[in-house]
Design a protein around this nucleic acid. Structure first.
Lengths: 292, 292
DNA sequence: CCCAATATCGTTCATATCGTTCATTTTTCA
DNA sequence: TGAAAAATGAACGATATGAACGATATTGGG
């Protein structure tokens, strides 16, 4: 998957001259490694990062072993959702991964892919299960495949710069639904944050320790399921009391219903990844230190 | 234990031709030892020095500029375990991944990597947590990193052939520890099975449906935690009654204590991945249809 | 111990890529 | 609008790389 390409291959794939690719490498715009003999080797992740930075299009992805963009599914989120749902229900891992990869290569933002394709797809599978049209194992297997796919996409994201802002987060005790927290991590990385997911099923007390260790600029909490809302509110408030002023608290998840949120303090509550992106932008404009 | 690479292995690892590696050896850029017969043997230390000198990277672009790894990690499982434990406790994802990747490139079997490095490392982290020397989030984050690493390794495994034997499995309701089931899937794939993990937290009833859909030759069940042993025994027995003769039931996990196992029927109980491999071999010799 | 299967050897040669220069096209800005 | 600046693409000899070859070394069973 993570292949290295020569300037000539890259040039053909994006329809520019080999000279230009070499120049971009030398200028540092396109990250590159060298063989012992001085030949350039371009990792696919660098190329994708570069293309998205410069708004260029990958005209012939098949030259790099990537899926060809099928115009229909990449321009129509509904169609993509339908296709993904079918692939997940049938356990077609390759198809699902290819579909998501195509969307990403077609320069859709992670937020859009997550909000408008993956989330609706998981939603629909959940409905089918409740109607008795799908088995539980189909839903679980679908989650597995999505997690695999997210993992693959993650390796194509820009590597966090050494001094970029730190973010940590996860899901709380009793909540094992790790897809949202994986998504948050990726959206943050897409926006050049140094984000690290702590995982799922975390007691709030241990998050306190993690915040103390990492000293993050942002802390996220995904709540898909709450075992004991009252206890949660109490412990959460304690955490916020301690760090709320120095760390941006981002919360989300369907377990945080409106009456519950009314009793919580936070920097922002996000219904979607798009909300999160908006909040990130507001942080950047507010704090010059966060600009890149 | 083999810490020496052949030119071919090195070539694959850094994505150049075997000819180039040999030329670099002959030119002296890449330090090399020779067998009595004149075959080149490249120590991992030379390779790492060489990569560092020339700015090349090992498979994954983000592995650049990491702290120096111990040269002994690939020929000493204890040392590797120690290094992995430290990396996991400190949340050093890249280091952990590179360590495991190096072991794999050094052609250690997955079973050995899992049994002798990853499992002991997770075990040790669990102990440190119980002693109060480690925080819960460190353990969770460690699991997260291991899962990421496993997913990466998984993408390097052979893609199942179209008509290879099918295997499915997972963990039961209330058991969210998915590392073992991911490992089983990978070991099976390494041995050319068409294995598909259904994920975690699966009711036994839905496994029945999955077996009916997949018609597997092998079914595995990982039990790290049992909420209701009596109910489990009853439901499991029902499942075995239905498929035990046509499907090889492989069970494992620390929740299946000896008295519990005494009341269960299965093809094999595995304490380790090595046990699983042994069982797979016995299946292959027993059934000519399974030879590859 | 020997044999067969596989891996690696050293060599040769065609091809790919290097860095550089320069002509051409595109963009910028007075 | 027009000239300066910047980006692009083509061409060059020199060097690096990759594929192929028969010969030899290593490995793994019987």
């Amino acid at each position: 998957m993570d292949k290295l390409f020569s300037p000539k291959q890259v040039a053909r794939a994006i329809q520019v001259s080999e000279s230009s690719v070499k120049r971009w490498c030398d200028k540092g715009d396109l990250e590159v490694q060298y063989t012992a003999g001085g030949h350039r080797k371009i990792p696919i992740s660098s190329l994708i990062d570069f293309l998205r930075k410069t708004g260029q299009e990958l005209l012939q992805p098949e030259l790099l072993g990537l899926p060809r963009l099928s115009r229909q599914s990449t321009n129509d989120y509904q169609e993509a959702t339908r296709l993904l749902t079918q692939a997940l229900l049938n356990g077609l891992e390759l198809q699902a991964r290819q579909l998501v990869l195509e969307l990403y290569l077609a320069e859709h933002s992670l937020a859009n892919i997550f909000d408008k394709v993956i989330a609706p797809s998981m939603e629909r599978i959940g409905q089918e299960w409740q109607c008795g049209d799908a088995q539980i194992y189909q839903e679980r297997r679908g989650c597995e495949i999505i997690l695999q796919t997210l993992r693959e996409l993650r390796s194509l994201l820009p590597i966090p710069a050494p001094h970029s802002s730190i973010a940590v987060g996860g899901t709380i005790s009793g909540d094992y639904y790790r897809i949202p927290t994986a998504m948050v991590e990726m959206v943050l990385r897409e926006h050049h944050w140094n984000a690290c997911s702590l995982g799922d099923n975390l007691p709030i007390q241990t998050m306190e320790r993690a915040i103390l260790e990492y000293r993050p600029r942002l802390f996220w909490l995904s709540c898909s399921h709450l075992e004991n809302p009252e206890l949660f509110l109490e412990q959460y408030d304690c955490l916020y009391e301690q760090f709320g002023l120095s760390v941006a608290f981002v919360v989300g998840g369907r377990a945080l219903t409106e009456p519950l949120r009314a009793r919580m303090r936070y920097a922002v509550h996000c219904d979607s990844m798009q909300h999160l992106v908006g909040f990130l932008h507001s942080l950047q404009t507010a704090d010059p230190a966060l600009r890149f």
